[in-house]
């Protein structure tokens, strides 16, 4: 039975590696270089591709052989990747979790094997498992976005909210931060709230359904990430609704460009490159002997609106893409 289980785990691990190495293009493994694994929740969203590719690139700059693993939003696949990374001799794991609770066991397994895990962007609900967690301040970012939303709406109107994957803290923190502001304005009414799992195609379907149901009553849409904002945008364009104010969160390049064109109202700029680079540098420091890391490093999120869009570019700020570290 155990043998069967081991074969199954190894098969899954092998399958995961095969799939993940394709988008990363990281098939070559120069001999002699220490390994770092980059485990990303999904590569079905350009934002996460940037996160993974940046972590990999920074690790390589620091002299490591880095490989990206795509968990495809599946904790079982994620577990297989961890097994594979540990068994394959990775000295650190740069980790974008699939599930705040469901991913904890994987991190603990790595810790027990002596492999440090540095979480990027997505939190795990434990403070004794990862070596450090470098996390976007999703709540604070959506508070700021909520304030801009209220201003842009003139403190009145109807909106719909499209939430992310409910198993992830980020989905809740974003929604909560937004509502913490917007719910104080009685003439702004949420007429529908649905989850679309941070997925562009699902958001497109959800938005189509909401447009059929609520039609002209919708004045604005708040999406929990930019991939969903792009899905909603497609549905709005198809329905000829250029009067609807659309808000996203992430700072994806295509959304920033649409803000500059006046097609999308605003988004929250996370700094995926900053987080990814910091995680790789922490891993390098750990491998070189440092052990004292902050458990949680919040990364500020900034509002990208028509007023500020000129400051922002390729997944960060134009002049100084990297916020100051203290």
């Amino acid at each position: 039975m155990h043998r069967l289980l081991a074969v199954a785990v190894l098969s899954l691990a092998a399958l995961g590696c095969t799939r993940s190495s394709t988008p990363s293009g990281a098939a070559s493994t120069p001999a002699g270089k220490p390994k770092i694994a980059v485990v990303i929740s999904t590569l079905n969203n350009p934002w996460f591709v940037v996160l993974g590719e940046t972590a990999k690139a920074r690790a390589e700059e620091l002299g490591y052989d880095a490989t990206i693993f795509n968990s495809e939003n599946d904790t079982a696949k994620e577990a297989a990747h961890f097994e594979n990374a540990i068994a394959g001799g990775s000295q650190a794991i740069l980790f974008n979790a699939t599930d705040s609770d469901g991913s904890i066991a994987n991190v603990r397994r790595a810790k027990e094997a002596g492999v440090p895990v540095f979480c990027i962007d997505r939190e795990i609900n434990a403070t004794d498992a990862a070596t450090s967690q470098i996390l976007s301040d999703n709540h604070g970012g959506c508070v700021a976005l909520g304030q801009y939303f209220v201003e842009a709406m003139g403190e009145k109107g109807n909106y719909v909210e499209i939430m992310g994957y409910l198993g992830d803290n980020n989905a809740h923190n974003r929604s909560k931060g937004f509502h913490e502001v917007v719910d104080n304005y009685p003439e702004i009414k949420m007429i529908a709230q649905q989850a679309a799992d941070f997925d562009r195609a699902k958001a497109l379907e959800v938005m189509e359904t909401l447009l059929q149901k609520h039609g002209a009553a919708i004045n604005a849409v708040f999406c929990g990430n930019d991939a969903m904002a792009m899905g909603a945008y497609q549905a709005l364009v198809a329905a000829g609704r250029d009067d609807v104010k659309l808000f996203g969160f992430d700072g994806a390049t295509e959304v920033v460009a649409l803000i500059a064109d006046g097609k999308i109202a605003a988004t929250g700029m996370q700094f995926p490159k900053t987080m990814a680079r910091q995680a790789a540098e922490y891993a390098d420091e750990w491998i070189k002997g440092k052990r004292d890391f902050p458990q949680k490093v919040p990364v500020a999120v900034e509002v990208v609106s028509p007023d500020t869009v000129a400051q922002f570019g390729d997944y960060g700020a134009k002049e100084d893409a990297r916020p100051a570290a203290r």
Partner: peptide, 25 residues
């Protein structure tokens, strides 16, 4: 008043003191 400015201005709230960041929000 919104945001985390008041919470964080003193530097006395340990942001790792809670496993779930929603608590500190």
């Amino acid at each position: 008043v919104f945001g985390t400015t008041v919470r964080d201005v003193t530097g006395t709230v340990d942001l790792a003191s809670r496993a779930d960041s929603r608590d500190l929000a």
